[in-house]
């Protein structure tokens, strides 16, 4: 399906500005992974998924998305606000008292667009499978998307879920793994390498594709291909290579910005590198 590349790039730039501004204002949060996954969120919510911004928890006859690695909440919140789930101005409340924008996504505050709490890692893939099974029972033809981290693959529950989804032919599920190669303590290859994820998921019975997650055209083509292959009795996983901190040069490619907020000077420098396109909140 045709898409307006230039427009999507503009949204990405604005979402990145939101991310660094939110994390700076809260003086806490996770900018690195958020910046790396910006193209993914913008593609899903501005082109790939069919959904209503008049939010209903059940999401019947809608595409639904689950974020398993909840710490990259800034990119999730910004994307949801920018497509109209809630007021963009609310992004200013991120991580502050009485906010619906909790440090990690939560349903308790009733923020539209959030269907499950996440933050404790490894749980989102199972939840997404549950929704996918419900859609099949309901004869609902839309799909379920879920994002997990590459470090998150170290959690055992991921592999329980991977085994179940293949065995039960959960083919309306499109999982994506953010392969940025980093986790809090350092490169995942040094901390506890998950090894060859492509071979691992393939051997579990999944359909595996790879793409550059910071290249909008390639990412969208990969997501569209995955959508076109739903219903073929296999769950799908996209190994999405991204660069942590993408778009802000001094944050790129290092785990050091996993969970650190920029100071005033760093914020100014970051915003200098990102064009304001839709208007800051």
């Amino acid at each position: 399906m045709a898409f307006d590349l230039e427009n999507l790039q503009k949204i990405c730039s604005q979402v990145r500005r939101d991310i660094v501004r939110m994390v700076h204002a809260a003086n806490s949060g996770h900018p690195g992974g958020s910046l790396g996954c910006t193209e993914y969120f913008v593609s899903l919510y501005n082109h790939i998924m069919k959904y209503n911004t008049d939010f209903k928890m059940e999401g019947k006859n809608e595409d639904v998305f689950f974020l398993s690695n909840g710490h990259i909440s800034p990119v999730f919140y910004s994307t949801l606000a920018r497509v109209g789930f809630f007021e963009v101005a609310e992004l200013a409340t991120f991580r502050k008292l009485d906010s619906r924008l909790q440090g990690h996504p939560a349903t308790e505050e009733g923020l539209p667009g959030i269907r499950i709490a996440s933050g404790s890692l490894g749980q989102g893939l199972s939840v997404a499978i549950g929704v996918a099974l419900a859609k099949k029972l309901n004869g609902d033809k839309r799909n379920v998307f879920v994002l997990t981290g590459d470090g998150e693959q170290q959690e055992g529950q991921i592999w329980e879920a991977a085994m179940f989804a293949a065995h039960n032919k959960v083919d309306n599920l499109i999982a994506t793994i953010d392969c940025n190669g980093q986790q809090i303590d350092g490169p995942i290859k040094e901390v506890n390498s998950p090894g060859d994820l492509k071979a691992k998921y393939a051997s579990f019975g999944w359909e595996v594709t790879e793409c550059d997650g910071n290249n909008l055209e390639e990412l969208i083509k990969t997501l569209e291909a995955a959508v076109s292959e739903t219903g073929n009795e296999k769950p799908k996983v996209i190994l999405m290579k991204t660069e942590m901190g993408k778009g802000v040069d001094f944050m790129e490619g290092t785990h050091k910005w996993h969970g650190v907020a920029p100071n005033d000077e760093q914020l100014a420098e970051a915003l200098n590198q990102l064009e304001e396109t839709l208007g800051d909140y």
């Binding site: 928890m57 019947k60 269907r115 893939l125 549950g130 929704v131 099974l133 419900a134 309901n138 179940f164």
Partner: peptide, 20 residues
């Protein structure tokens, strides 16, 4: 679900999300 209780609870949470 087989011998995978954590996955079972997660799947149940997903089914409930969708109204089951």
């Amino acid at each position: 679900v087989g011998i995978a209780e954590a996955n079972m609870i997660g799947i149940a949470a997903g089914l409930a999300t969708a109204g089951k």
